[in-house]
Each structure stands twice: as C-alpha cells, then as structure tokens.
Design a protein around this nucleic acid. Structure first.
Lengths: 240, 240
DNA sequence: GCTCCAATCTGGTATAGACCAGATTATGGG
DNA sequence: CCCATAATCTGGTCTATACCAGATTGGAGC
C-alpha cells in the first residue's frame, strides 16, 4: 500500500498507535471492532489482527475475551522483596484493589511442593487460590501454600485481604528469608481461565519462598501476572 | 479433526510437545519445516504456525529468522542484585559465554537519561552497546551508560569482559545503592535487529541504576533479554 | 419495570492459496 | 580444491473467505 519496504502490519501498528494518541483514548477504553478497523485501514482482518497483536505485545492494548480490544492501564509498581500487602500498595498508587478467593482448602503436600520446600510428601498444607483486581481488571492469580503447623486455623479467617498481615498480627510470624524467582511464561490452563485470557497469553511468573525468623518454612507464593500489568521495582542498599 | 471441543491448534501444540519429547530433541536442535509439519499433522501451515507460536510463548522452542524452529536451551539463572559479571555466572552454570561490543562512544546525556540519573542534559557520558551470547545463541543486548568523571579512559579498555570488574579493580568503584526495574516488553527496532528476532518478539527488560559508595551516579544499565532465556533468582536475608 | 429469549456483534479458529526475502545448499567453472 | 553463482528451501507476509462461540443488545411478553 505504501512504498517503504516495511511490512504492512508494522505500518498499521504505527498508524494505530498514532490514531490512539490522536483520539486521546484512555485506560480501559474500547477500540473499534477488528472488522471496522480493517475497513478503515483498507486491509483484511488477518492483517489488522497482526498489528493489534503487536500492540498487545508492547503492552499498549489488551483483549477481553470476545468483547474487544482495550487500552492498557498504567503498569502497577511492585516490590516483591517487601512484605507490604497487595491492597496497600495498590491504594498507595491511586488504584482500587480487589481480591477474590477462588478456593481455599487443607490438602496434602504434592511431590513438586515437597521438593521446593523440604516438607514431607503427604504432609498437611493450606492451599489458597486467589484472583486480584486493580480497577476491576483481573491482573493476577496467586497460589499460597502455608504451613498449618505455624498458622493453625488460618483458613477460617477471611483471605480477601493480606495474608501476610494476618501472619504478622495473629501468629507473630514474619518472613526473614526469602527466595524469589521471576520469569516470563505463557498463561495456560487454570491460570488463563481464571484471568479470562486466551491460552498462551504472555505472563510473568513470580515465586516467593519464605521462611520465618526461626528458619521454618512459612509460605510458598506462586503468582501469575498479565505481562503488561506490572513493573517490578526494587531498591537495594542501606538508606534511600 | 478430533472430537473434543479443544481448538485444533491447541491439540497440535500437545501433539508437537509429545513428539518433541518422544524424539528426545535436545537444546538448539532443529524441528522439521512448517510445510513438513503441516503435512504430517494434516493441517495447514497457518494452523501449525499457531501451534508453534504457542510453544514459542511457553519457551519450549524458538525461531531463528528464516532458518527454522529450534529447541530452547535451559534458562540461565540470573541474580541482578549481585555484582557478579556475566561471564562468570554463565561459566558457573556450565555454559559458554561470549560478548560482542557493537559500539562504544563518548556522547552527551539525552533528556530521558538526565531524568533517570539526575545528570545535566548535554553532559558527557560513556555509552557502550553490547550483545551477549550463551552457547552461541544471542540472549540479550545491553546498553551501559557510565559517568566519565568517575572512570576516565574506560572506553580505551576492552569492553568484551566485565565492566564491573574493571570499575572495581581499576577505578576502585563499587555499586553501593541500586535501583532495579524489571518488566516484560516486546523487542523492537535496534534491539530486535541486534538479536536477530522478529519485531514484537517477547522480551524482558532489566534496568539497573547504580550509585557508588560516595552516592555519585556510577552506571545505568539497560538490558533487553529474550523472554525464554533467563530465570531471575534472588535471595533476600542475612545468611544462607 | 422486569425477565427471558432471539438477533446481532465480537473476537477466535480454520482453510487454501500466493508471493517474497533471506539462508542454505548444490553446482559448475576456474 | 576453492569460489562464485544459481537453484532451492526456509519462515515471513498477505489476501479472501467461512463458520463458530461467547458477549451484548434489543425487543416481546409478562
């Protein structure tokens, strides 16, 4: 269509970007439908979808299953090395947090968990599965595995707020040592469904293994974030 | 093709996964061509490409521009909070590192860098752009911005090894405070070209802003990693 | 005003083909 | 044997079309 040797879908990406800027579309606002865009830019739906996927990878737009394309909100800043609850740092940044507990149960330690934590296979373990929202967009799901010996009766409490705060206030437990793992992955299966995204959507995995002041296993936390939802920010050093 | 209500490309993903396991394909080995796969699995190239893209997102395979699909090597473990050089921790994990300096120059602080570092716009700054390999696969490109006042003559040295080590040994500078930012992004432009991947390939961005023991700006490091290349692993706490 | 259901709109999946550009391989001449 | 060139193979891009399933909307009936 144009004379440069740039592929069409990348040209469309640029034009869509400019169009979004020009229209001043703001967070969570919906784009025109793919069919409408493909007409407007004189191309096919397949090609416009390539351009949209490009902008999605860049984090400018996101899709909501069969509802349309929307402008991605600003990334949430997150410091996994601090033990500040989700609700608190979301509010601090001017957003509205919400947490849903999808299930919580007492179960038995499976082999992979035994390997990670050093617990015995088959030992009792609390398992909490939660979904967290910011401004009514589900950004992550989270599995918490807790040692029932250290926090008996925890499942009886509400888990819609901070588990850490509960551990600190009710059980006098504080994470002293922490092993953190972070890597990009594709959201699949249970996690993709719970976040209502397509299988294979880009995500970020954050795992935190915490031991308390006595060196006992305290918690394993496995978080699955949307790739465009957060920016990890950590400060290392004595004073600020 | 099958009776489940699972999409074909996800079934293909599973069958490809099984096939790769069965064939015992190992790191960096090439898959059959897309045309061959689409015949073998009785589908079209478009659909097989969807399945391949799925496995790519999951990090099992990667593509090399117009050469084919290959098995992804194991992720490199990386701790951005420590000041251990790239070459050293790659070797420690049993891989072969290599670094290419794509360019190095004395330039002037642009506005965005001034904002990040607190330096004055137009002040002199060293800029080094490098590409790093593990077992001959380019995994990341890296921009280093260094304060010439603190390390005069640095550009005269070879930058194919550890810059940190040079700062420590030759200039007696050690990073005391560090602000780290990490987030997923799409590799574009210069970074995508240098890594020889398509525009929009998933990547991970790691930025490190370092100040030395005197509180002076020391270095800004901007790393662009392939999304499947690394696993960040950090330990926080007193002793191990 | 409400509920329920049908029509409609959305993105998601899939087919069948075509051509291009870069990478690799085969070939032929020196 | 080496080297240059041609043929071939690879993934990358693009068109045109079709149907599906879930989400939304609009209207009929209460």
């Amino acid at each position: 269509m144009c004379r440069t040797d740039y592929p069409v879908y990348l040209q469309l990406r640029d034009r869509l970007w400019d169009w979004i800027e020009a229209e001043q579309l703001s967070s969570q606002q919906r784009l025109p439908s793919e069919r409408e865009l493909s007409e407007r830019f004189h191309t096919t739906r397949v090609t416009i979808r390539q351009a949209l996927a490009q902008l999605e990878a860049e984090g400018l737009i996101f899709r909501s299953n069969r509802r349309g394309w929307f402008i991605t909100p600003e990334r949430l800043r997150y410091d996994p090395s601090r033990d500040v609850g989700f609700n608190r740092y979301v509010i601090e940044q001017g957003f509205r947090p919400r947490t849903e507990t999808l299930f919580k149960q007492l179960t038995e330690v499976p082999p992979w968990l035994a390997e990670t934590t050093g617990l015995a296979v088959g030992a009792p373990i609390y398992h909490v599965f939660r979904r967290r929202y910011v401004d009514e967009r589900g950004l992550l799901v989270e599995h918490n595995y807790l040692n029932p010996a250290r926090c008996p009766g925890l499942l009886g409490e509400s888990t819609d707020l901070s588990i850490w705060q509960m551990l600190r206030d009710k059980y006098d437990l504080r994470p002293e040592h922490r092993d953190i793992e972070i890597y990009p992955l594709a959201l699949k299966g249970q996690e993709a469904e719970a976040l209502n995204v397509n299988q294979g959507t880009a995500g970020l995995y954050i795992q935190r293994l915490s031991h308390d002041q006595d060196g006992e296993f305290l918690e394993l936390d496995r978080e699955y974030w949307l790739h465009d939802a957060l920016k990890i920010a950590v400060h290392i050093g004595n004073r600020h």
